[in-house]
Each structure stands twice: as C-alpha cells, then as structure tokens.
Write a protein that binds this DNA or RNA. Sequence first.
DNA 1: TATTATTTTTAGATTTGTCTAAATTTATTT
DNA 2: AAATAAATTTAGACAAATCTAAAAATAATA
Lengths: 219, 219
Amino acid sequence: MNFTTSEENHIKCIYHLQQVTGLVNTNSLAAEMQTRPASVTDMLKKLKAKKLLHYERYKGFKLNEAGKKAALDVVRKHRLWEFFLVEKLKFDWDKVHPIAEELEHINSAELIQRLDNFLGNPSFDPHGDPIPDKHGKIPVINQQNLSTVTLKKMLTVSSVTNQSVQMLEMLKHYNITLGSQLMVLKKFEFDESLEIKVLKQSPCIISEQVAKNVFVQYV
Amino acid sequence: MNFTTSEENHIKCIYHLQQVTGLVNTNSLAAEMQTRPASVTDMLKKLKAKKLLHYERYKGFKLNEAGKKAALDVVRKHRLWEFFLVEKLKFDWDKVHPIAEELEHINSAELIQRLDNFLGNPSFDPHGDPIPDKHGKIPVINQQNLSTVTLKKMLTVSSVTNQSVQMLEMLKHYNITLGSQLMVLKKFEFDESLEIKVLKQSPCIISEQVAKNVFVQYV
DNA sequence: TATTATTTTTAGATTTGTCTAAATTTATTT
DNA sequence: AAATAAATTTAGACAAATCTAAAAATAATA
Ligand SMILES: [Mn+2]
Ligand SMILES: [Mn+2]
Ligand SMILES: [Mn+2]
Ligand SMILES: [Mn+2]
C-alpha cells in the first residue's frame, strides 16, 4: 500500500514509541509529533481504516504487523539516507536528521534497493542505529548502556541516542566516535559520573547524562 | 523564499514553456501539468501574490526575474539528482525523471551544494541538458538539431530531447549515446530520413522523428 | 465515593490544492 | 458586424491535514 508523508511520519513515530511503552497514548504521540491531540485522533482513524493499528478509543493504540512493516520500511529509508549523507556527502551526523526526514518519503523501491547497494548494504546508520533490510529484518545487537556496564572491561561504542550538535561537540572533545574502544575505570557515587579510558588517551570523567546516551558492546 | 511542491512544479513548467513561446497561456500549462485550466488560474493567483510572474487575466503570463531564479533552482536540483541516479546508482536514463521529479523538492541548500561537489560539479545531466549553477547560470551550448546540420561534417551528440524507453531502445540499437561521434552522409527528400555514419560503425538510416530529437555540436 | 483533574474525542473551522459547471472574455468565422 | 468557437475565469464543491474550543470518558484524589 501507499501512504502519505503525514501517515508515514505518524506510523514511524508510533513505532518508536511502542518500542518503549508497548501501548501508545494520544498525548505522547501528539507531543512527539509536535501536533495536537485532536489531530492525532484524526490520524488514528485514518490509520485504523487502513488496518495498520489496533485502536479502541480512549484505550490507547499500537501498530499491528502490517503497521510495523510499514514503519520499518520508513525507518530503513531514513537510515539509508542518513548513511548516504554522512558517508558520501560528508555531513556531520548532527545535521542529517531533518534532511533524511524528508528523503525518507520518496517512494521508489528500486531507488532504495540501488541506494542500499551503492552504499555497500550498511547495517548501521551514522548514529549506530540498525538499518532494517528490505523485509524489515533488523540486525540484532547486544549492546548495553554505558552507565550500567561492568568496570574495567574493554568496550566498543555502538550507538549514541542523543544526536544533537551539543552531544557531537562533547564526544568530539572526548575523542569518542562510533567504534571507539574504551573502558570504565570507576563510577563515582556522588553524581554517578564515570571515569573512563578511551584507547590511546588519558583517563577522563564523563557525566551520567552523557553516559546514559552512549551504548556499547563488550569486545 | 520557500515554495510548496505544487508551486515549484508549476514554476518549473512555466519556465520550460516560456523558453519556447515567450508568453505562456492557461491551457498549455494545464495540458503540460496534467491538470485543469481552472486549477492553473488558481495557482497563477498564488504565484502572482508571491511576485513571481507577470500576469493579467485573459492575457497570458510569464515569470519575472524572481520567478526565473526560482525555476532555475528547481531545474538545478532536478538535473543534479538525475545525474546522481544515472552516474552513481546506475539507473537507465529513461527511468530517472519521475524520481528526480520528487527529489527536486527536498529543500536544503547545503544538501544540493554537497551533492554538486560529490558529483564533481557536472555541467550536463544524463540527457545532455545543462545544469544551472547555484546562481542560476547555465552553461552555453552551441548545439544544433541533427536534422538541420551540414552534411559530411563530424558531429558530437550533445543532448536528446525525447527521454522515453522507446527512444533509449532506438539509440541503443544504433549504438548512439551522449558524446558519440557521427556524421550525416545524405538526407533523403522522400521522408526526410538521414543516412548517418557513427564512428567505427557502418552507415545506417534514421527517421526524421529520431533526428528531430537529437542535438549535436560540430567537432 | 464524590469531586477534581487529566486525557481523549467530537464538532466545527481553516488552509491548500484540486475539481466541475457555468459565466465571461477574447478570437475566429461567416 | 454578428454569430460562433475557443480560451479563461469565477463560483462553488470536496478531500486532506491541521487547528481551537467544548464535550465526554477515564484516572486520581480528597
Ligand atoms: Mn519524515
Ligand atoms: Mn539515525
Ligand atoms: Mn517535481
Ligand atoms: Mn534530464
């Protein structure tokens, strides 16, 4: 089936929310979409008519299989374009989201398939988020939040959830990028900050706020 | 200023029509846009309000300087994306138009600048049409229609105006692509067909219909 | 449990882009 | 010049996506 840009944006947003909460409610979707609860209700009726979600009024909603498939298709396009923008056009990672937010709505299966091949069928976008394949299959990643990790074990940075300029600035300062190797030396109970050692650099301290946005894998 | 997708499509279409006719009229724009004359009139009011064209009702219309600038910006984006699709994603040239028709509406000056650089600042799109630079400047080309050319002079194919699968099939059969070298040996008065010799191939005959869509430069 | 607060939906309006049918203007023929 | 034809515009309608304000349902609290 074919969806409008607005429908695709809503579907994708519901998908992300239901990953966290299971069932999604009207106000949270409205907040996330920067729109009004009344507008969300309108859209829910359309998406229900297209049989993309389970929805009973006043009771919350979530995507069914068809809805999840549609969401993953948009996510795939979004992340492939982000990869293109960073790897080929040399954008900084904090600039690509709004552009990918538009590119993801270009509908051409052949375009995306060719783009995927051109990019070398990448598995992760520039933020470390997995890129679903054309069937909606997502590579499994065994990652863990940096703030919950065992001390003195070697780690690799696999993704970063906050993708703002500010975050990029911080990570650049610490010389951390996706794939960086590091180890947590100590956790300070006072403010939950961490002393870490990035490979080939002297130890430094990062705040709990930073740590909570960084995900890692054990090497 | 920022324009809607529909506005951009209309502006671009007016630009192409006025290249040929000077002044454009409602019916031709409606025909070209596959829409209704009444819808064109509606759009003209909007574009006039945005000060993009000279328009007096019942008298025809044409873009002013601001309108031409806006049109060239869309043309630039369209042709850069077409170049990307053919050169990088290996699309056949007859498949790229509808996709570029959508990509051209992604609005990000930085995206287009980076794309332009990534592609090596090309001057011509896959159909041989010139790509305006970011100021709207178009490379001058001294090309001539193949059907009006001097006999027995060496020529280079510089552009092809019909971009259908059918045309691509014909040209592939004759082994002609952009940049091919050829020479017209004889013009048959009976049906205006041409005997041509493509470099390294034996002479053959092409119809007037084909010739009229092929533009060349003297070597 | 009754009252109050929060969440969600409905009712009705607005904007954009399009359409059809009818009216108007301009162009072309007798 | 009058009649006819063609082009163009207007009037009024509709669908999509959004909004505000009010009503209804549900949740939280006294
Ligand atoms: Mn989007
Ligand atoms: Mn991303
Ligand atoms: Mn377009
Ligand atoms: Mn082209």
